[in-house]
């Protein structure tokens, strides 16, 4: 089956789920999962296709969330404009910060991105006058679409999932273009790609910027959906969660990651009784995935071409 056909089927399925299920708790859970899918799809482009790790993605989500909320609450800018500006600013920040960072390799890259994420986290946590610090920040208005206010779980569900699918489609198109082939070359043999005239560094910076774009967009939408943001939602733990989802889903595999992300972001909500054990589960999943199934769930979806 073609990737895009399968994507369309999935889209119809999620819409059907939205029509059948009326329970706001479940719809809310699935909408949150959609936001995570956006971040993880972006990270997948970076980690799965270009083979570059980022341990600071939660920081970029925070960037999108805080810039857009601050613009809209403090300056009274229209939410959509605020989101647009925030995503643009975050992506620009990603490009600037990515330029020197992506010259680094392996654990240097991991630590540098981790440090960037931590820096954003620390600033957000401590700049109390502006961000509210650990107390969080609220007062964001509801999003509205052509005069149609997204004020309950059902409406947001039908807004966020099409957006998510659009973004997945975008990333599939990106990967299957001439760009995508360059990334495959970079991932398998960087020097060879370089020798064939691929500007390895610029390609890496570009894909990093795209993944920051995804992360900050998800962050901004999250902020306006929940109406409250606090630094604790954008820490190292979340960055690692995103990595877990990409790895278990099978790096570079859109659908494996799609399902893994939904499962891993819904499960903790259902299994609240084992909340304390969740880090262990995550850790063991990572170890297990690296030792036994380095390709994650890729094989499960190998029939989608």
């Amino acid at each position: 089956m073609k990737k895009k056909t399968f994507l369309l089927l999935l889209f119809i399925l999620t819409m059907a789920v939205g029509i059948v299920i009326k329970n706001p708790f479940i719809l809310n859970m699935l909408s949150m999962a959609a936001l995570t899918v956006i971040v993880v799809t972006g990270l997948n482009l970076l980690l799965g296709f270009a083979g570059q790790i980022s341990l600071g993605h939660a920081g970029f989500v925070a960037l999108g969330a805080y810039i857009s909320s601050l613009l809209s609450v403090k300056l009274g800018i229209n939410p959509w404009v605020a989101i647009f500006v925030a995503v643009l600013a975050s992506s620009l920040f990603g490009a600037i910060i990515g330029y020197p960072t992506l010259k680094l390799k392996s654990h240097y890259l991991a630590m540098a991105t981790l440090a960037i994420g931590e820096i954003i986290h620390i600033v957000v946590n401590n700049y109390v006058e502006l961000t509210g610090g650990p107390q969080g920040f609220s007062g964001m208005p509801m999003l509205s679409l052509f005069g149609f206010v997204l004020d309950n779980e059902t409406k947001f569900y039908f807004f966020i999932w099409p957006v998510t699918f659009l973004l997945i489609l975008l990333s599939i198109n990106l990967v299957e273009s001439r760009f995508g082939r360059a990334y495959k070359a970079i991932k398998s043999k960087e020097n060879a790609a370089y020798a064939f005239g691929v500007n390895v560094h610029m390609y890496k910076v570009f894909i990093f910027t795209v993944s920051v774009f995804y992360a900050s967009l998800a962050g901004a939408l999250y902020a306006f959906y929940i109406g409250f943001i606090s630094p604790s939602s954008f820490g190292l733990t979340q960055s690692i969660d995103y990595i877990v989802m990409v790895v278990i889903g099978g790096m570079g595999n859109f659908f494996g990651i799609f399902f893994t992300t939904i499962i891993l972001s819904v499960l903790p909500n259902i299994l609240t009784s084992i909340e304390d054990y969740w880090p262990i589960v995550n850790g063991l999943l990572l170890i297990f995935a690296m030792m036994v199934i380095p390709n994650g769930m890729k094989r499960l979806f190998s029939w989608i071409k």
């Binding site: 790790i53 990595i243 304390d276 880090p279 262990i280 850790g283």
Partner: peptide, 30 residues
């Protein structure tokens, strides 16, 4: 873990050690 990992790349070892450290933290936390 480390010695048993097949075709370990640096990336996979980084991810794995992250996994090990959060597991240990989780176990001690409990």
């Amino acid at each position: 873990f480390i010695a048993k990992t097949k075709n370990a790349t640096e990336l996979s070892l980084i991810i794995m050690t992250i996994g090990i450290s959060i597991t240990i933290r989780g176990i001690v936390g409990i």
